[in-house]
Nucleic acid binder design. Structure first.
Length: 422
RNA sequence: GGAAAGGUGGGUGAGUGGCUGAAACCAACAGUUUGCUAAACUGUCGUACGGGAAACUGUACCGGGGGUUCGAAUCCCCCCCUUUCCGCCA
């Protein structure tokens, strides 16, 4: 959620940034400013009335003590009047506050200056690419056929016990999952992230904290009886660890990592994109999260991008990095880099990581602040990235490293797997 | 699921309906002292939203929401959460 004073004082800047999202927010922003204006005016009126009432109450108290009962009773008339007046104002005020909140929920984060205008994914900029795309022979197979051939993943079984998008990993397929999770966690640890094992269900407040609620309500699985949500990413519990927390400057940056399964309803996505491991309702992911001082966040974003680069290089996968254009960027993000690996048999790019700086957008809802050396309290910047999400990595590993004898496991992963070939 | 206790500032923890935005202690910060560190002493030290160039100042906040009252951390009602005991159980 953006901050009203920011919108008020930097209206032009905010609007020109928001315009990159290929949508016009000027009407909404103008309403926010004017609703807030009325809100402040009303608040002021109320405060003045309450101040008067407080003053009178004190006098009444004193009069009582002096035994001047009648005089005191006389003054009660005015406070009763004030109370009536306040009631009306309070009703209006809470209406305005609600209106303001709803308006603020409509406005996404302001894109960073490096973000370009764009309507959608096709206008994302490729800012880096690495690895060679090998032409595979005629015998190349897509990963879902490799999974079947080598008995790594059984999609049908998953359908039977749960439904589509819930695969069952078997034998070397399951061990490969464990190996990747361990590999990613170890690498994160080496890079200074502290591992956390967090709950896989979160309450409503956490959903609001990181911005999944109210915008993406339909994307999360909701456990009605207990009013809890299955996490769509470890970002939610990890970042919410610091909800309502006042940090000291020297604690920053805070670097967190954690492995969790992720649950996504993916309502409304059909077609060939969902084949095999391309899109699942449950998948595994190691997430990295950072909380930082405002002035450090972009340098840290670069560190995170480099960390993910390192992982993909060790897995010997061809990949590219995209800087998302305004139209394709997530609601809460200010700058996002997507990582895509090349899926050699499908002959398409698959997104495996999204690494973003949210600046203060999440911190504002989270109320995660720090006290700077100047004694001023300010919001932290939050960042996160997938490092990495497993299914598409597995797809790319299988497809890119297949040969006539099966599938080769990249060297870096062998110690974690315990086998060199599938 | 049943019963009981409890939720107060960064932490611990007081708080007869008005003099309590809240004692005390710890932590933190600044200063004095000191060869250094420590100790001691002194002072500062909650958040949010307003007004003001600033000094400063108004309001709200003691889990959340209502209510009683001229006045509520304190009394009443509802809800949420935590802890302990019992039951069930990996």
């Amino acid at each position: 959620m953006l901050q009203v004073p920011y919108l008020r004082e930097n209206t032009e800047k905010a609007l020109s940034g928001l315009a990159k999202r290929n949508k016009d927010f000027s009407a909404t922003v103008q309403s926010i400013i004017s609703v807030d204006e009325s809100r402040r005016k009303l608040q002021n009126e109320l405060d003045n009335l309450l101040a008067e009432s407080n003053k009178i109450s004190k006098i009444i108290g004193d009069l009582f003590k002096e035994g001047k009962r009648e005089e005191a009773d006389g003054m009660k008339v005015r406070t009763t009047e004030i109370k009536e007046e306040c009631k009306g104002i309070e009703t209006n005020l809470s209406q305005l506050e609600e209106e303001l909140k709803q308006l603020l929920y409509l406005v996404p984060n302001v894109p960073h200056e490096s973000v370009v205008f764009g309507k959608g994914a096709e206008e994302n900029e490729v800012v880096y690419s690495s690895g060679e795309i090998h032409a595979l022979g005629e015998s190349k197979l897509p990963h879902w056929e490799l999974c079947e051939k080598h008995k790594l993943i059984d999609f049908e079984l998953g359908v039977k016990i749960t439904g589509a998008g819930f695969p069952v990993y078997i034998g070397k397929g399951a061990r490969l999952q464990r190996a990747l999770i361990n590999f990613f966690l170890e690498e994160a640890m080496k890079a200074g992230y502290t591992e956390h094992q967090v709950p896989h269900l979160v309450n409503e407040a956490s959903g609001y904290g990181t911005g999944q609620l109210p915008d993406k309500e339909g994307q999360m699985y909701h456990v009605g009886v207990d009013d809890l949500y299955l996490i769509p990413t470890a970002e939610v519990p990890l970042t919410n660890l610091y909800r309502d927390v006042l940090l000291k400057e020297e604690q920053l940056p805070i670097k967190l990592t954690g492995y969790t399964p992720c649950f996504r309803r993916e309502a409304g996505s059909y077609g060939k994109d969902v084949r095999g491991l391309n899109r699942l309702h449950q998948f595994d992911k190691v997430e990295i999260v950072q909380l930082s001082k405002q002035e450090d966040s972009y340098a840290l974003l670069e560190d995170m991008v480099n960390h993910v680069k390192g992982l993909l290089n060790k897995l010997e996968l061809p990949f590219r990095i995209l800087r998302l254009c305004g139209g394709d960027m997530g609601f809460t993000s200010s700058l996002t880099f997507d990582f895509e690996v090349y899926s050699a048999a499908q002959e398409r790019w698959l997104e495996v990581s999204s690494t973003s700086n949210f600046e203060t957008f999440q911190a504002n809802r989270l109320k995660c602040r720090y006290k700077g050396s100047d004694g001023k309290t300010q919001l932290v910047h939050t960042l996160n990235g997938s490092a990495l999400a497993l299914p598409r990595i597995v797809a790319a590993l299988l497809e890119n490293h297949q040969d006539e004898n099966g599938v080769r496991i990249p060297q870096a992963l062998v110690p974690y797997c315990g086998f060199e070939r599938i």
